[in-house]
Amino acid sequence: KSAVKALFDYKAQREDELTFTKSAIIQNVEKQDGGWWRGDYGGKKQLWFPSNYVEEMI
């Protein structure tokens, strides 16, 4: 599983989504079709976030 870095702040709209700030590192990313991926951040595990808010880390 990979890690991504947030390009923008994102505030969860639902309880199954992540809230994060710009430059946050989201771990254990599971990529899905449809523009939403799952990952771990801030003590939350495998919640959804919009993939267009992040960049992949190499």
Score class of each variant (00 low, 15 high):
residue 1 K to Y: 12
residue 1 K to S: 13
residue 1 K to E: 10
residue 1 K to A: 13
residue 1 K to L: 13
residue 1 K to N: 12
residue 2 S to R: 13
residue 2 S to P: 14
residue 3 A to T: 15
residue 3 A to E: 13
residue 3 A to M: 15
residue 4 V to W: 12
residue 5 K to R: 15
residue 5 K to A: 06
residue 6 A to H: 01
residue 6 A to W: 00
residue 6 A to T: 07
residue 6 A to K: 01
residue 7 L to I: 13
residue 7 L to H: 05
residue 8 F to G: 07
residue 8 F to S: 08
residue 9 D to A: 10
residue 9 D to H: 06
residue 9 D to I: 02
residue 10 Y to Q: 01
residue 11 K to H: 12
residue 11 K to A: 12
residue 11 K to S: 13
residue 11 K to R: 11
residue 12 A to F: 02
residue 12 A to L: 00
residue 12 A to Q: 07
residue 13 Q to L: 10
residue 14 R to C: 15
residue 14 R to D: 08
residue 14 R to I: 05
residue 14 R to P: 03
residue 14 R to L: 07
residue 15 E to R: 09
residue 15 E to M: 10
residue 16 D to T: 10
residue 16 D to V: 09
residue 16 D to M: 07
residue 16 D to E: 11
residue 17 E to P: 00
residue 17 E to H: 09
residue 17 E to A: 00
residue 17 E to N: 02
residue 18 L to K: 03
residue 18 L to R: 01
residue 18 L to I: 04
residue 18 L to W: 04
residue 20 F to S: 00
residue 20 F to G: 00
residue 20 F to P: 01
residue 21 T to N: 12
residue 21 T to K: 13
residue 22 K to A: 13
residue 22 K to P: 03
residue 22 K to G: 05
residue 22 K to M: 10
residue 23 S to R: 08
residue 24 A to P: 02
residue 24 A to Y: 02
residue 25 I to G: 02
residue 25 I to M: 08
residue 25 I to A: 04
residue 26 I to K: 01
residue 26 I to N: 02
residue 26 I to F: 04
residue 27 Q to P: 03
residue 27 Q to N: 13
residue 28 N to Y: 05
residue 28 N to S: 06
residue 28 N to M: 06
residue 28 N to C: 10
residue 28 N to T: 00
residue 28 N to Q: 07
residue 29 V to P: 00
residue 29 V to M: 00
residue 29 V to S: 02
residue 29 V to C: 06
residue 30 E to N: 12
residue 31 K to E: 05
residue 31 K to Y: 07
residue 33 D to I: 10
residue 33 D to A: 14
residue 33 D to W: 09
residue 34 G to Y: 07
residue 35 G to I: 09
residue 36 W to E: 02
residue 37 W to K: 01
residue 37 W to Y: 05
residue 37 W to L: 04
residue 37 W to D: 03
residue 37 W to R: 01
residue 37 W to F: 05
residue 37 W to A: 04
residue 37 W to S: 05
residue 38 R to C: 05
residue 38 R to P: 00
residue 38 R to W: 01
residue 39 G to M: 00
residue 39 G to V: 02
residue 40 D to Q: 02
residue 40 D to F: 01
residue 40 D to W: 03
residue 41 Y to S: 05
residue 41 Y to L: 09
residue 41 Y to Q: 03
residue 41 Y to C: 06
residue 42 G to L: 09
residue 42 G to P: 02
residue 42 G to S: 08
residue 43 G to A: 09
residue 43 G to S: 09
residue 43 G to R: 07
residue 44 K to V: 08
residue 44 K to C: 11
residue 44 K to A: 13
residue 45 K to A: 09
residue 46 Q to I: 02
residue 46 Q to N: 11
residue 46 Q to K: 08
residue 46 Q to D: 07
residue 47 L to R: 08
residue 47 L to P: 00
residue 47 L to M: 12
residue 47 L to K: 11
residue 47 L to F: 11
residue 47 L to D: 02
residue 48 W to S: 05
residue 48 W to C: 06
residue 49 F to G: 01
residue 50 P to C: 09
residue 51 S to V: 09
residue 51 S to I: 07
residue 51 S to E: 08
residue 52 N to E: 13
residue 52 N to D: 13
residue 52 N to S: 15
residue 52 N to F: 10
residue 53 Y to F: 12
residue 53 Y to S: 07
residue 54 V to T: 07
residue 55 E to N: 07
residue 55 E to Q: 10
residue 56 E to Y: 07
residue 56 E to F: 08
residue 56 E to V: 12
residue 56 E to H: 07
residue 57 M to C: 15
residue 57 M to V: 14
residue 57 M to Y: 14
residue 58 I to T: 14
residue 58 I to K: 12
